[in-house]
Nucleic acid binder design. Structure first.
Lengths: 158, 158
DNA sequence: ATAGTTTATTTGACGCGGCAACTACTTCCG
DNA sequence: CGGAAGTAGTTGCCGCGTCAAATAAACTAT
């Protein structure tokens, strides 16, 4: 049970703690949003990203990248948001393969309504528990971990 | 869009980075394990936890807590693992409501086979990207975030 | 004992995300 | 031009996790 490059004690401890966060935080965050606003985190993020955009509009692929989701997931998310009236989809004028998702007024209103509760939850579960120095550490570490990893395919045994 | 206790610039940046990790890391980890060993992270964790136990046996509720999952999720995980022959379930002798999940030899073998690839992935996606000091920070921060939050229900607007 | 409450676990219904296949458009190149 | 290759996005199938309800056993107090 310790064959390749096993983890040392510090790493193992950190890994266990990180695994806990990875399991618990998304659930806790999702459940508040779901309960209070009937949105998943990913839905919320899509709304946020669109809201920050000039024209509140973006192409699907770019939106998927920004929201850190797969294209197929994004496609379903936007389909749901469209069904709820929060976004519209239209063909891009320059490239007829592409689709522009656009935040509607209703979507913007939804976001404004959902934000306070969500932010409160983020504050409660994350920032209230960290000193400013720890926030800086978190930023540094999270940035290191979210770089160009997502390829997610390691060439073991190929 | 800035009503309650909004996030300041540092917090916002850290939050965005953390959100990226929360979305990408589990996917990347799961996909390696799924592809190479046909196990989900949660399945793997359950096997690990049992393997570290005297008698390789534990009650469902305790297992759920240790693995940071809900009871119903754990129930399904163990059902799957049992179907695959990796664990067995038996009634606890002292409390007939309780169920003891026990790792089988096959389960242990499965874990031993899956571990190297998984650890390599963890190393690649996490520890290879962090200095020892950053590992210490990670440990500290992750520990702060995974304390007693899971209640997951905040009393906003009740 | 007995009814009521609490604890341990499972399950049915349902929605969501991943993978791979598919459509449709665009670009490249001879 | 015309076909091959690449790009954008969607969808069917399937497995997984959540929620709430169900089952069953164990206390608790009368």
């Amino acid at each position: 049970m310790d064959e390749p490059q096993w983890l040392n004690a510090d790493e193992l401890e950190a890994w266990k703690a990180l695994a806990g966060v990875l399991f618990l935080l998304p659930t806790a965050l999702d459940s508040q949003l779901q309960r209070d606003s009937d949105l998943a985190m990913a839905d919320y993020m899509v709304l946020v990203i669109l809201s920050e955009r000039d024209g509140r509009s973006m192409r699907m692929t770019e939106l998927a990248t920004s929201a850190n989701t797969s294209q197929s997931r994004l496609s379903r998310i936007v389909a749901r948001l469209e069904a709820a009236g929060y976004v519209t989809r239209q063909m891009a004028p320059d490239d007829r393969r592409a689709v522009l998702a656009t935040l509607t007024e209703a979507g913007m209103a939804k976001l404004v309504a959902a934000a306070p509760g969500h932010v409160a939850q983020v504050r409660k579960l994350v920032f209230d528990r960290l000193s400013p120095a720890q926030v800086a550490s978190l930023n540094e570490v999270a940035r290191a971990l979210s770089n160009p990893d997502d390829s997610a395919t390691c060439e073991i045994s190929t």
